[in-house]
Amino acid sequence: MLKTRETRVEERKEEKRSEKRDRILRSAEAAIFLDKGFHAASMNEIAEAANVSTPHLYNFYASKAALALAVQLKMGQETFDALKTAMSAGEKNP
């Protein structure tokens, strides 16, 4: 099935939004939360590190707590994926 121009435009917008969300999460995790801690971190610093405006950051995450939760979920998923990979590698090479 051929995609319409509108569908391609919407897909591209969502792809850019997803990339921006990932950049925000990486910035919050690495540059701010792990370095300064939750209480010392500010949404302004996170926005600056992610190269987005602070109001735009709030379009993605309603609060610092919501952003911290998203970072924790991302880190948990990465840990789970790494363990799953290691376990499946161990099954192939006993």
Rank of each mutant, 00 (worst) to 15 (best):
E15L: 08
A49P: 02
N59Q: 15
E14H: 07
A65T: 09
K16W: 06
A50H: 03
A82L: 10
R8M: 04
G76N: 13
P94A: 11
S88M: 15
M87H: 15
T7R: 08
L34S: 09
R5A: 11
H39P: 08
L67W: 00
A49Y: 04
F38H: 06
E14V: 10
A47F: 06
R17M: 03
I32E: 12
L73P: 02
M75R: 13
K36M: 07
H56N: 12
F60S: 06
R5Q: 14
D22I: 02
V52D: 02
M43P: 04
V52T: 06
E15I: 08
K3Q: 08
A89G: 12
L2M: 10
K13P: 00
E10N: 06
Q72F: 14
E10Y: 08
Y61L: 02
L73F: 05
S88W: 12
E6M: 09
S63A: 05
S63Q: 02
E45F: 02
N51R: 15
A47V: 07
V9S: 06
L67G: 04
N44F: 12
M75G: 01
K74E: 15
T79V: 09
A47G: 05
A30D: 08
M1D: 10
N93R: 11
E45C: 04
A89M: 12
G37M: 00
K92V: 13
K64L: 02
F38G: 04
K74S: 11
S27N: 02
S88K: 13
M87I: 06
E15T: 11
K92D: 13
F33S: 00
S18Q: 10
F80E: 09
A70H: 01
L34T: 09
G90T: 10
Y58M: 14
E10M: 07
R23I: 03
T7W: 09
T4A: 04
K20M: 10
E11L: 04
V9P: 03
N59L: 15
A89L: 12
R12C: 08
I24P: 00
D22W: 00
N59G: 14
A50G: 03
N59D: 15
E29F: 05
A82Q: 12
A50C: 00
A89H: 13
I32H: 06
A41M: 03
I32C: 15
A82T: 11
A86G: 12
A50Q: 01
E45A: 06
A89Y: 14
A66F: 01
T4M: 04
D81V: 05
A68H: 15
V71S: 03
R23A: 13
V52N: 02
A41R: 01
R5P: 06
Q72H: 15
R21C: 07
N93L: 14
E19Q: 07
V71D: 00
A62G: 11
L73M: 10
P55L: 12
E6P: 05
K36E: 14
E48T: 05
T54F: 06
M87V: 08
A41H: 04
K36G: 07
A89S: 15
A86F: 13
A66R: 04
F60T: 05
H39W: 10
Q72D: 14
A82G: 06
R17G: 04
S88A: 14
A47P: 03
I32M: 13
S88F: 14
E78R: 05
S88L: 14
A89E: 15
P94R: 13
M1E: 09
Q72C: 11
A82P: 03
R23W: 00
A28G: 00
R17S: 05
S53C: 05
D81Y: 05
D35S: 07
